[in-house]
Simulated scan of single mutants.
Amino acid sequence: MIISILNMKGGVGKTTTTLNLGYALAQQGYKTLLIDNDPQGNLTTGIGIEEYEQTVTDTYLNGILPIHQLSEKLHVIPADITLSTVYNELSNKVDANFRLFKSLKAVNKDYDYILIDNRPDAGILASNSILARSIHVFS
């Protein structure tokens, strides 16, 4: 199941909800993937990831899923400020809103839950997050 945590207002607890729900699901034995879909990278820093070579930006631009294993049941795809470049890079691409969907199809069945933390925005990143939720319909 893919859950996108979205709200158009900042500071309402999207990252906190994603982080705490992810930890709780993993503690209950569910294999959980957290995706930081916000250029501020607060989920990444909040979960304690300090070193990484690739981020969710690589997912959008190259189809790479840089999954970091935090525990047996909890994994994360980090983000940083480079994610803000995705808007410009994908603005004229036909499949711009389906990049995350396409990449997650490869691992969707490996996880009980995939939680996506989003920035307060209704652009390409939010569209990708919403459309990724439809994987179960097309798989």
Rank of each mutant, 00 (worst) to 15 (best):
L34D: 10
F138V: 06
D117H: 06
T45M: 08
L21F: 11
F98H: 04
D95N: 15
D95C: 09
R119V: 09
G11P: 01
D121S: 14
N7A: 11
T44W: 01
H136M: 11
G41D: 01
T45R: 08
T15V: 07
G41M: 01
A24N: 07
V86A: 08
G48M: 05
G29K: 13
G29P: 03
N118R: 12
D110S: 12
K31L: 10
R119K: 08
S127Q: 13
T44M: 05
I124L: 13
L90Q: 03
I135Y: 03
H136W: 09
K102N: 11
N37E: 02
M8C: 12
L70F: 07
G22M: 04
I49A: 06
I114W: 01
K73E: 05
V107E: 08
T57I: 02
M8V: 12
M1C: 09
E72L: 07
I130T: 07
P66L: 10
A96L: 10
S134V: 06
E50S: 12
P120L: 09
Y52Q: 13
L100T: 01
L131E: 14
G46F: 05
T85P: 00
V86L: 06
L6W: 15
D95R: 12
I64M: 04
L65T: 02
S4F: 05
T57N: 06
A96G: 08
N37D: 02
F101T: 00
L74D: 04
Q27C: 04
I2A: 06
D117Y: 02
G41W: 04
T82S: 15
L19E: 07
P78T: 14
I130Y: 05
T45A: 11
H136Q: 13
L33H: 04
V107N: 07
R133L: 00
L19Y: 10
G11H: 01
I77A: 01
K14N: 12
Q28S: 13
G13I: 06
T59A: 11
N92L: 15
I130K: 06
S129T: 10
Y30I: 04
D38P: 02
I135S: 05
Q40V: 15
D80F: 03
L43K: 03
E89H: 03
N62M: 15
V94P: 01
E53G: 15
T45N: 10
N92H: 12
M1R: 08
S71Y: 09
V86Q: 01
L61Y: 10
H68T: 15
Q27V: 00
R99A: 02
Y111C: 08
Y52G: 11
L104W: 01
A106P: 00
L43V: 07
L6Y: 14
A122P: 00
D95T: 15
E53N: 15
A26D: 08
S84E: 04
G48R: 03
L6K: 10
Q69N: 12
L34C: 10
S129C: 01
Y23K: 14
N97S: 13
L65R: 03
N42T: 06
G11D: 06
N97H: 10
L65H: 02
T44L: 02
N118D: 12
K105E: 13
A26M: 13
T82H: 11
S134Q: 09
G63D: 08
G29E: 14
L70T: 08
P66V: 10
A24E: 07
